[in-house]
Amino acid sequence: MLYQFDGKQPQVETGTYVSELAHVIGDVIIGKQCYIGHGAIIRGDYGRIVIGDGTAVEEGVIIHAPPGDTHTIGRKVTLGHGAVLHGRSIGDLAVIGMGSILSIFSQVGQRSIVAEGSVVKLNQVIPEKVVVAGNPARVVRAVSEQDEEMWAYGKQVYIDLAAKYLKQDMVPVS
């Protein structure tokens, strides 16, 4: 559901699916062909959130912005189930693993992968094309060609899923 707050309301581009079970609040801009999953919370209440085309915000993801700042999430980013994101930026084609935490003012470079359950600390900057893991997140290796092939497939799955949800609604079962 989309909610106006403090005179601002979310903007959602064409081909994007936003679950009725999601909460998208205030100053939020969502690009084309995105998937905003069930139970996601995107809070643009005291900061702006900009989500690029083809990005998947999976179930249970929470996105916020630093106060008075913008949290920019690039194109074709995968935000895994249950991730908590309060950073400044996530580059194009990045992957944020399930249950990861990106603390306030953090930045993740394009094509990087944050492993499941990792914690990117306050002001931490993750470079481009690396895999990070742990608490705090540390570089464990470079992104491989195999990683990029696998995640290209995964990203397309969610673009296709968004289109499918737009074509056929969920139907409550009694």
Rank of each mutant, 00 (worst) to 15 (best):
M1Q: 04
L2E: 06
Y3E: 04
Y3N: 00
Q4L: 02
F5S: 11
E13Q: 15
E13F: 08
T14H: 14
Y17V: 03
E20F: 01
L21E: 14
L21G: 13
A22S: 10
H23N: 14
V24M: 02
I25S: 00
G26I: 02
C34M: 05
G37I: 04
H38A: 12
A40W: 00
I42E: 00
G44F: 01
G47A: 04
I51W: 00
G52P: 06
V57Q: 00
V61I: 13
P66M: 09
G68P: 03
H71K: 08
I73Y: 03
R75A: 10
L79H: 00
H81E: 03
L85I: 15
R88V: 09
G91M: 08
G91P: 07
L102F: 10
I104W: 08
V108T: 07
R111D: 14
I113W: 04
I113M: 11
A115E: 13
A115R: 09
K121N: 14
N123V: 04
P127R: 05
V130R: 07
V132W: 05
N135I: 12
P136D: 06
R138M: 09
V139I: 15
V143L: 12
V143G: 10
Q146I: 14
D147Y: 10
E149Y: 11
A152I: 03
Y153H: 15
Y153V: 15
G154I: 08
G154R: 15
V157Q: 13
I159Q: 12
L161A: 06
K167N: 12
D169L: 12
M170I: 12
V171Q: 14
